[in-house]
Structures are given as structure tokens and as C-alpha cells.
């Protein structure tokens, strides 16, 4: 580890930070209570982690044609990941998956005290707009 150049140190710091953010994102996917809050962990914390690792690899690569290709991957991930998570969340909302919402005082760390009803898929009916209140 002692034979690192300065650039290699910087890129190693970026890669370690990025993997740390991805680890937190993965933990969030397991820990968070409902689908919509899991989307935050899975798609946003992860996106930042991926961007940090790719920036680290770009610093390692230096100024070559592969750096341009890595920049394409960077731009693609930054644009595509939010669109993918938005599409998934909208599909869930359209099929009637209710978000689990609560105030801080109703939350004991693993479940909601006042309202423990699990979110369930209900079919939206065309005739009654009140039935589709999501």
C-alpha cells in the first residue's frame, strides 16, 4: 500500500467512499419499512456510490479515450437511474400500492405503533374515483 502515487491515493479514496455509499444503500434496501422508502436507498444512495467509484476509476485511467467512455457511463447512470426508479414508483402507484406514512412519534424503530396496517395492492376501479384514492 505504501507504493501508491498521489493520483492512486485520490482514486482509492473515491472508490472506498463509493463502495461505502453502496453498502449503506444495500442495508437500506433491507431495513427500510416500505417500497417507496426503499426506492430512496436503492436508487439514490446507490447512484452516488456508483458515480464516486466511476470518478475514482477515471482518475486512475488518466486522460485517454477510455476516460471518455467512462464519462459516458457516468452520464448514462446519472440520467438512467432516476428515470428507472421513477418508472418503478409510478407503476407501483398506478397499481394501487399504498405508501406507509407516519409521524416520528408513531415510529418505534421497526413498525408503526398507531397504524400497523400493511400496505396492500387494491385495484383501481374506473367508476368510483374515490375508490382509487391512493
Amino acid at each position: 500500500m505504501s507504493d501508491f502515487t498521489v493520483l492512486e491515493w485520490i482514486s482509492a479514496v473515491f472508490i472506498v467512499l463509493g463502495i461505502g455509499f453502496m453498502l449503506i444503500g444495500s442495508i437500506g434496501v433491507i431495513r427500510l419499512p416500505d417500497f417507496y422508502s426503499r426506492t430512496h436507498a436503492a436508487s439514490k444512495t446507490d447512484t452516488l456510490g456508483i458515480l464516486l467509484v466511476i470518478v475514482g476509476l477515471m482518475i486512475l485511467e488518466g486522460f485517454t479515450i477510455n476516460m471518455g467512455k467512462l464519462a459516458f457511463v457516468l452520464i448514462f447512470v446519472a440520467l438512467a437511474n432516476p428515470i428507472g426508479s421513477h418508472a418503478l414508483a409510478r407503476a407501483a402507484m398506478d397499481s394501487g400500492l399504498k405508501p406507509l406514512l407516519f409521524r416520528k412519534e408513531e415510529w418505534d424503530g421497526t413498525s408503526v405503533i398507531a397504524d400497523s396496517k400493511k400496505p396492500s395492492i387494491v385495484k383501481k376501479s374506473k367508476q368510483s374515483p374515490s375508490g382509487g384514492s391512493v
Binding site: 455509499f21 449503506i24 427500510l32 439514490k44 444512495t45 405508501p99 407516519f102 416520528k104
Partner: peptide, 19 residues
Amino acid sequence: AIHVASMIIHPKMDIEPSM
């Protein structure tokens, strides 16, 4: 991102989801 990461690894998960 730092704020959300700190909320996820907080032992009580200090979240307050809202629409």
C-alpha cells in the same frame, strides 16, 4: 446523500415518510 445515509444507519432509523 450524507443526510439519507445517516438516517439509514441510525439504529432507530430516524425517518418520517410523507407525500
